[in-house]
Design a protein around this nucleic acid. Structure first.
Lengths: 146, 146
DNA sequence: CTTGACCTTCCCATCATGGGAAGGTTTATT
DNA sequence: AATAAACCTTCCCATGATGGGAAGGTCAAG
């Protein structure tokens, strides 16, 4: 044993694919803060600990975090990611279920995009009518206060 | 006085353009809950009260709430609405300031729309590759777990 | 044996909104 | 006049995803 301190489990562990939360964060692109949070809310399983209480991450744990990161990048909510993770880890899943979830999410995105585009249109129309000079007359405010 | 109760200020007030929070909510489209909240955070001035502590709303107060409602509908944040209200109530404003605020907000919307459209594109590409049948093979999960 | 870089938990903040409890007031209906 | 319904008040909690920061323990290296 190369351990120099009483509880150097992590020191021993490194090199066997086990690391601490900081490293897991760097490798997965998920902040340590969020990794702990995902554990709190049960999105990921509780990981092992050293005797000192430090969390220990295996390669598969980091892989899971990367999956979460990519899902977040696509805008999935935590709840949806929970479902996706379940399907991912279930070898007997039907791809139809995954597709359904994805299509639902696309529909959600479309709704939000449409809503924001409507705002954009309405505002653009007002902006186009506003001289934007030193005078106080302003169709934008006139419309808001109508 | 038609007052039948000790402190019937509101009863007397109605008909003179003064009302309670529930009515103000209905007229402005802002929930009573949010009206109180806007007062808490200082977005609107504290309104008068009856001796019993009930808030009293004048027509101008309701007008202000309508302004806020319309601004929210266009997606302005509370902070931005604070600025807009300031300009609205300032007869010496320059319409350029209003326009600047509105253009900034349009830019914000554009950024968010673009972000969501990028998600939409990426996800659509994956969905199009997924058979969506009973088999487990799924390019969506493959990509997320890559 | 100290220093600095980790880790731990815990609480607080964001943004806009709503739910609900506990309790007081007004209005309407017996 | 008594009671019930519909208000109002304040206070606390929750959402979703994220971060800040404090207080304190641990570990590696000098």
């Amino acid at each position: 044993m190369r351990a120099t301190t009483k509880f150097a489990e992590l020191g021993e562990a490194k090199g066997e694919g086990l690391t601490n939360i900081g490293h897991a964060a760097r490798r997965s692109g998920v902040s340590a803060k969020m990794i702990r949070h995902y554990e709190d809310i049960g999105l990921v399983h509780r990981v092992g600990r050293t005797r000192a209480g430090y969390r220990i991450y295996r390669d598969t744990d980091i892989h899971t975090l990367q999956f979460i990161r990519r899902s977040r990048d696509l805008g999935f909510t935590i709840k949806e990611i929970g479902l996706l993770l379940g399907l991912w880890q279930n070898r007997r899943r039907a791809s139809a279920d995954v597709k359904k979830l994805a299509l639902k999410h696309i529909a959600d995105l479309d709704a939000r995009i449409a809503e924001m585009q409507a705002m954009r249109m309405a505002l653009t129309r007002l902006v186009d009518c506003c001289h934007g000079d030193q005078r106080p007359d302003c169709p934008i405010l006139d419309d808001l206060g109508a």
